[in-house]
Design a protein around this nucleic acid. Sequence first.
DNA 1: AATGAAAAATTTTCCGC
DNA 2: GCGGAAAATTTTTCATT
Lengths: 148, 148
Amino acid sequence: MDIVDRLLLARLQVDATTPYATLGEEVGLSGAAAHERVRKLRERGVIRRTTVDVDPGAVGKAVLAFVMIEANTWMGGPETNAALRALPWVEEAHIVAGGASVLVKVRAAGTAELQDALREIFDLDGVTGTQTIVVLETFFERPVAVDA
Amino acid sequence: MDIVDRLLLARLQVDATTPYATLGEEVGLSGAAAHERVRKLRERGVIRRTTVDVDPGAVGKAVLAFVMIEANTWMGGPETNAALRALPWVEEAHIVAGGASVLVKVRAAGTAELQDALREIFDLDGVTGTQTIVVLETFFERPVAVDA
DNA sequence: AATGAAAAATTTTCCGC
DNA sequence: GCGGAAAATTTTTCATT
């Protein structure tokens, strides 16, 4: 992956609807060459998918929280993964080092729904406690820096 | 926003390269009508942008961490926002309730670069301390649930 | 790997309902 | 707001360097 690939990635992160001809111009390639580069980036899995960024508030998810989950069993297995995936409020789930075992990012309509989510998390096998950090304001959420 | 809009959003989150004709079929509309729906969702800001999801590992960001920042001044202002935005490692920044003032999601090439990021965070005005949670494994990171 | 051009498909516009 | 069709643009393929 050279600098041109990185430029293309950065550009597509900003607007993936940009025509290949325009992308090519911006990186000093023909449209066909830019297209071929992007095709390979997708093929190699560098680009995982093309998606739309949806405003959470507009779909009724007003509350964001991070929940640190403590457990008395190893939570790094596929069962925990699947159990967390099944919870619609959980947007991200990570196994972490430190006091907690798992850190999840949770989005809910309001505090009542957040409470529902927390109850479900509590009910997972091995969970002994949770610590919740409620977000008051999100400054920004942006794509991975590609530093081209 | 009715159920059709939500179906379209959910479908576009999975693959934003899907032709309007196909989207229309899947939600029971013509291609033109599906296109008009999506156009309005963009116009209203429900769809913020069309983007590509880049594999962080493929662009050399192997380490993920969450950093809770404690401060002795109010960090909710635009100066803090701008200062955090200027740090390339910071992927998300949130003002939070609880012991910490700010919670940031940081991605770095390795532990050395993570240390650089932490130093820069420490140097921000008002910061009195940080607590870092290092991610060992990411189960998943997915788009906002649209529950259609 | 890149280019220009042709071919195929899609996006976008527009009119009638 | 939706559907069908034309028009404009883009994606995709291909022969060549």
